[in-house]
Design a protein around this nucleic acid. Structure first.
Length: 240
DNA sequence: AATTCCATCAACCGCCGTAAT
DNA sequence: TATTACGGCGGTTGATGGAAT
């Protein structure tokens, strides 16, 4: 099959895989629009990128999802919604596409059947918004988590404010801040041990000034605690 | 054995944000 | 500042294979 530009579409052949693999091994990833020409492939750059990222990359983990992986995906999906690429960033070896497919074919059904036994109040979707991306913004960076009218906001520390001019990607790593121990990340399952930075993380009423009515979290907090706080609904806030 | 149904997952499509010009 | 090109993302499609009839 070909598209109007005469480029091949559909399933990749072994020969095409070999050409792409050799090219990436020699020249590395990136400049995807130039890859087809240089690698001798009659494909779009986007098709090459997807084939590498979702299939050929040797770091991809094959086989069934383990229970701890599923557990992590469910927890992160509750926090982030369908932010598959961010979720994939916390599940080693799994691609966003893998996780999305796994969610749609397994987990969503599993949760649908189990949700019949839970209260509707706990089924609200929470979305994590990175805000803002601009390095010129007055507030350097923070995460905003909203669940209907509830919000959780991460204040930048002094050190983070000094680092404001870092690459924007580095400014938007909020979920990583929730999992502070690299050892836990490697074990994948221990998200329940996740800590919030004790001094610069606050939950507050955003209708007040930042310095007022701010509740400091000086102790470790579990995902369950975090979700309970949002579900309890004791914060009344507005979107910024 | 043939056909239909269903689940899975690789790949495509359209959109959006960012960088380059 | 406006336009264009590119890369990345999430939603969706469609090919495939196994199970059910």
């Amino acid at each position: 099959m070909q598209n109007p530009q005469g480029l091949r579409k559909g399933a990749w052949t072994d020969e095409e895989d070999t050409l792409l693999r050799r090219f990436i091994e020699k020249y590395g990833e990136g400049k995807w629009d130039q890859v087809p020409l240089k690698a001798g492939l009659n494909r779009s750059g986007e098709s090459c990128r997807l084939r590498w990222l979702n299939y050929l990359n040797p770091n991809i983990k094959r086989g069934e999802f383990q229970e701890d992986e599923a557990d992590l995906i469910i927890k992160m999906h509750k926090l982030l919604g369908n932010r598959w690429s961010i979720i994939a960033g916390r599940v080693p070896g799994r691609t966003a596409n893998d996780i999305k497919n796994y969610w749609n074919s397994h987990l969503s059904k599993k949760l649908q059947s189990s949700s019949k036994n839970t209260t509707p109040e706990l089924q609200k979707v929470q979305v994590l918004h990175p805000q803002p991306r601009s390095v010129h913004s007055k507030t350097p960076w923070y995460w905003l988590v909203s669940s209907n009218h509830k919000q959780l906001q991460k204040q930048p520390s002094e050190e983070e404010q000094r680092d404001t001019l870092k690459h924007p990607e580095e400014q938007c790593m909020g979920i990583k801040d929730l999992i502070s121990d690299e050892h836990d990340l490697n074990k994948k399952t221990n998200v329940t041990n996740a800590k919030l930075p004790p001094t610069n993380f606050s939950i507050r009423n955003t209708e007040t000034l930042p310095s007022e009515n701010t509740m400091r979290l000086d102790n470790d907090i579990t995902w369950e605690d975090l979700l309970r706080i949002w579900d309890d609904g004791w914060m009344k806030t507005r979107r910024l």
